[in-house]
Design a protein around this nucleic acid. Structure first.
Lengths: 327, 327
DNA sequence: CTAGTATGTGTAACCGGTTACACAACTATA
DNA sequence: TATAGTTGTGTAACCGGTTACACATACTAG
């Protein structure tokens, strides 16, 4: 392995000059620069990032902390983070937290020892002093940790309003809202959006809390549809829940979208694979991940960031679980 | 930050003794051990992994190279790798290769500079000298790179046979086999398994190549069902393709499973969310990832491994796209 | 003409570990 | 009793970079 000393010798300068040239720090004469450049090329010198880390106390590692990569929302996010990180020369470490503060804390401490550059965090823990005190660049997704930590989020409230209107516009009079976990910020924003919209019109509605889990949602919806046959529209706070609702309807022999219309939230690939295709409020997950990564890297590199809060717009995607015409 | 020198001073010994104690290398007297142990506890000393890496030229980083985490097969794999790695004190770096040898090579080189401990590779590139020459512990999933690299794979051929039989046993006489990409090892094993099984019985069949992609599969199947209305069973080499087939059938108004039965391959979560639920040959993806990680860590730590080739059994999961009784 | 600033470079300490080697003391063997 | 082997420890070099500081030269302004 060629070291900076080999390069210095070959170029006839000191290691300090080589280092200055490589890092564009301090003065280096034209002459010296060329000599070093030539030596680097000739020796095929490549800087050792570990040695550098040891005294700069920095690395180009980014930690991505998410609850569970297995949850269909996260792979696309991870993909975006990795893509963008790569273009800036950063490497992504995957951390599944299972929402456990203990695990998150553990990752943060382990990776701090490796001089990790920063973290992107997707978590629903309402309180997280280990983030606030981490003393590291952090960007949050979907949840505000504190006012100093930039946050990227979908426009959940607006999205919920869109989804609700989609059902109302298509004639629904009795809407079931599948509310997500109550300790989850984005789910609560969606709840607010639904409530504000539904209360402006003359329609009945039910709200049921329901985890973002297929089988549970299916069971809950099945029971609701049995107890309340008048329900003619379901708005689920996640696509997975919506899939559960669709399955429940199928099992009960309720025609979708003729007798019951369903709208989901997320826009994951699953939606188009269902029959009928799932109408949903689609988040631009890739974009969220991309923005989060760019913001984080700016923070890492001490550049100014434009905002503390980025809201990514959502989009209504109409498919087969809603009727085509607006009544 | 407390260093090994602080500990040495506190314990009244040399840094060498501290290091020997921490690494269990060389001789350390009972007395010295206790003094060091006490000093470590008192100073809350934690070893700096970067400094260690610099001269051992080793780290506890594992690279996970996969085509695209967005593909529903991989999140569970990634999860397994991360879980197991964590229990052994390793950290996982996520690398999306998009099947491009260039990207893979780039990751390998970048991470080698960080003294990465080893790689788990899921790739379909048939030729990969950069792996063979990487001079690092590597474990392959689903594909044999060369005889020196341990490989973990599902029993694809056996699985294909199972899936084919499931259709035959339920009365299918005209089976469409959706073969996967032809440059993909596991897909070819499944093809072989299908062919061997179907040729032993008196049944018609068609074979069509078809990427593991929903919309493409749907189109291909739609066309095939139009051209060959006699088809009464479809065996897809992946669940995503099977989902496409199911959608095609729905669009054409063909009753599943009454007129057409469908079996997929993979066992991803999507299967149970479809209506009817997808009968499939399920791979134990988590187990594959777990085994791969354990084998890799054994290689990293120079322990003996049991086999060069691990075949993980598959399981037929019966759901609604096949009829319940065997005829 | 001189002080002050910008330009340019090298020496050597430092980041925080590991380890080769030298050396001491003690035990076992012939 | 001489010799070899085992146990135990410390010094200092080393991994491969960065950077504080000292020093030298050239240029500018007063």
């Amino acid at each position: 392995m060629t070291t900076i000393r080999d390069v210095a010798k070959k170029a006839g300068v000191s290691v300090a000059t080589v280092s200055r040239f490589l890092n564009s720090t301090g003065y280096v004469s034209q002459e010296a620069a060329e000599a070093v450049s030539a030596a680097v090329a000739e020796l095929k010198y490549e800087l050792n990032p570990v040695a550098r880390s040891l005294n700069t106390k920095k690395s180009n590692l980014i930690g991505l902390i998410l609850p569970d990569i297995t949850n269909p929302f996260f792979p696309e996010l991870a993909r975006a983070v990795e893509d963008i990180a790569l273009t800036y020369g950063y490497t992504v470490i995957l951390c599944n937290s299972d929402e456990k503060p203990e695990k998150e804390k553990n990752y943060i401490e382990t990776l701090k020892k490796k001089y990790i550059a920063g973290f992107i965090v997707t978590s629903n823990q309402s309180d997280a002093p280990h983030y606030a005190n981490a003393n590291l660049p952090i960007v949050a997704l979907d949840r505000i940790i504190n006012e100093k930590i930039p946050t990227i989020s979908s426009n959940n409230k607006e999205g919920a309003s869109l989804g609700t209107k989609a059902l109302l516009d298509r004639g629904c009079k009795n809407i079931l809202f599948l509310r997500g976990p109550e300790d989850l910020n984005p789910a609560n924003d969606r709840y607010e959006g639904f409530m504000e919209t539904i209360q402006q019109v003359d329609a009945n509605y039910h709200v049921v809390s329901c985890p973002f889990h297929f089988a549970d949602s299916q069971k809950i919806v099945e029971q609701m549809l049995r107890d309340h046959p008048e329900i003619d529209g379901i708005f689920a706070s996640s696509d997975v829940s919506a899939a559960g609702a669709l399955k429940a309807a199928a099992l009960l022999g309720i025609a979708v979208p003729e007798k019951l219309q369903i709208v989901g939230f997320d826009g994951v690939a699953l939606g188009e694979m269902l029959t009928p295709g799932l109408t949903t409020v689609a988040q631009d997950v890739y974009k969220m991940g991309a923005i989060a990564t760019r913001v984080l890297i700016k923070r890492i590199e001490n550049q100014e960031i434009d905002h503390q809060f980025y809201e990514v717009p959502v989009k209504l995607v109409l498919r087969g679980t809603t009727r085509s015409g607006i009544e």
